[in-house]
Lab assay of single mutants.
Amino acid sequence: MATGGRRGAAAAPLLVAVAALLLGAAGHLYPGEVCPGMDIRNNLTRLHELENCSVIEGHLQILLMFKTRPEDFRDLSFPKLIMITDYLLLFRVYGLESLKDLFPNLTVIRGSRLFFNYALVIFEMVHLKELGLYNLMNITRGSVRIEKNNELCYLATIDWSRILDSVEDNYIVLNKDDNEECGDICPGTAKGKTNCPATVINGQFVERCWTHSHCQKVCPTICKSHGCTAEGLCCHSECLGNCSQPDDPTKCVACRNFYLDGRCVETCPPPYYHFQDWRCVNFSFCQDLHHKCKNSRRQGCHQYVIHNNKCIPECPSGYTMNSSNLLCTPCLGPCPKVCHLLEGEKTIDSVTSAQELRGCTVINGSLIINIRGGNNLAAELEANLGLIEEISGYLKIRRSYALVSLSFFRKLRLIRGETLEIGNYSFYALDNQNLRQLWDWSKHNLTITQGKLFFHYNPKLCLSEIHKMEEVSGTKGRQERNDIALKTNGDQASCENELLKFSYIRTSFDKI
């Protein structure tokens, strides 16, 4: 039985969820670079991206490699990797027998973001014989899940209580170790020597080791999670996991709180800001991140802002960003909400898709409305799209047979046209069989910064309504002859009103 693990408890099935942008060198404390989270699957090609990484700022997932063999891993080693800020997950990587050479110096898994409450997941690794993470000293947050690894031993010899604050939620089941077939031998045991430290858990006094050649490092209890030197002297209180010299914040392997210019500090002093819960960055760093993602459509890219001495992905609820200094300031009234469309555009074809934009005031991208039916549609669209004030790209209304009016965009005031449909149009209306009105132009103002209007096959939309939009939106004169079809717009509506004058002759039985 794995020490510190839980057996036999019912657990939810383990679901495996399925960018080499360097964020800056980590400095003297770390020998390499800070790398983003990685999802490495199918083959070993991307694994080489770990070569210079000291910190993975995010998670590391290595999974679904069915053609790899043990010899493929023999020359692979990433000794610079010290810390993973989120979680480490391995799933069905064939041929991998140990992690001792792959990650010989991995010391800390912070667990800032977890995989279903777990910071370390080893699942269905069919050839893994031992973990071998002999320098792993601290899992700051989260638990361990090690399950269905039929060859995995050296679990009962690990004292997880020396690595985690609590072992109650560890789930370590259905491994070879369960069948008591392992016969784990710690260093020196074969020669009758006791080389590794022994600890007591559940009444068992057991030597602690990761492999037959690597003991588990056990520091004096007084050192807590700070770690200790090879001689057993406690590291500085700002260290986490390990250090090369005692009581020196510049000799830590990793930091308990924050890293700044080669030393570990309790908090980031001005003019620095907390970033990702582990390091200090200056304003320029946060500003660069903001600008890199301002026009990016890459998933996970955030326009970072500053709030409460932190550089964070977005302002919290009730705050909006001051564009001059990136500071989050309290909103006066309802907060603006910028919604970034991942692929640059979004099609609204149902109430469900409209709900995804609920509360958005600025759309960074283009909207395509293609709704053919739905219950209580006008009210639903207004509830979900009615706060949109600005669209950076274009607005396209296409084959939306259920629409009679666009009044559900009740606050839309600006279409920038930074991206144009077919390279020309910022407003595009095609084949809307029941569209009769755009907006009530006596109450609604709309500016279209650039781009043209396109109207074709809107049989109940009168040309007068379209011409009014040209005047109000500032697009009059931009359109070419064929942009607004004269014969297919309003051709099934009563669009022309003329005053009919009647004269009559009164007659009676005795007068003409």
Rank of each mutant, 00 (worst) to 15 (best):
H28C: 14
Y30A: 15
Y30K: 01
G32A: 07
G32S: 02
P36D: 01
G37A: 15
G37T: 07
R41F: 15
R46Y: 06
R46A: 10
E49T: 12
E49K: 11
L50F: 05
E51D: 00
V55M: 03
I56S: 01
G58W: 00
L60H: 00
I62D: 00
L63Q: 07
L63S: 13
L63H: 12
F66R: 01
T68V: 05
R74G: 02
D75K: 04
S77Y: 13
S77M: 15
F78R: 02
L81H: 00
I82V: 07
T85K: 04
L88G: 00
L89F: 09
L90R: 00
Y94L: 15
G95T: 01
D101T: 14
P104I: 01
N105T: 04
L106Q: 00
T107V: 08
V108W: 06
I109F: 01
I109P: 00
R113C: 12
L114V: 08
F116A: 10
N117A: 11
A119C: 03
L120Y: 01
V121N: 01
V121Q: 01
I122G: 02
E130R: 04
Y134T: 02
N138Y: 13
R141Y: 06
V144E: 01
I146D: 00
N149Y: 02
E151S: 04
L152V: 03
Y154A: 10
Y154I: 12
D159E: 12
S161A: 14
I163K: 02
I163D: 01
L164G: 15
E168I: 09
D169K: 07
N170D: 08
N170E: 05
Y171W: 12
N175I: 14
D177S: 03
D177Q: 01
D178A: 15
N179Q: 09
E180A: 08
C182A: 12
G183L: 10
C186T: 12
A190N: 11
K193V: 04
N195V: 12
C196N: 03
P197M: 09
I201G: 14
Q204T: 04
E207H: 12
E207Q: 13
E207P: 15
W210A: 07
W210C: 10
T211H: 09
V218T: 10
V218D: 08
I222E: 13
C223V: 01
E231N: 06
L233C: 01
L233R: 14
C235R: 00
N242W: 13
N242D: 09
N242I: 06
S244L: 04
D247M: 03
D248P: 01
P249V: 03
R256G: 04
R263M: 10
R263S: 07
C264M: 00
C264V: 00
V265C: 03
P269E: 07
P270I: 14
H274S: 05
F275T: 03
Q276H: 04
W278C: 03
W278P: 01
C280R: 00
C280E: 00
V281D: 01
F283G: 05
L289C: 07
K294L: 05
G300H: 07
V305N: 08
E314T: 14
E314L: 08
C315N: 01
T320K: 03
S323F: 12
L326W: 05
C328L: 02
C328A: 03
T329W: 09
C331V: 13
G333E: 04
P334H: 13
C335H: 10
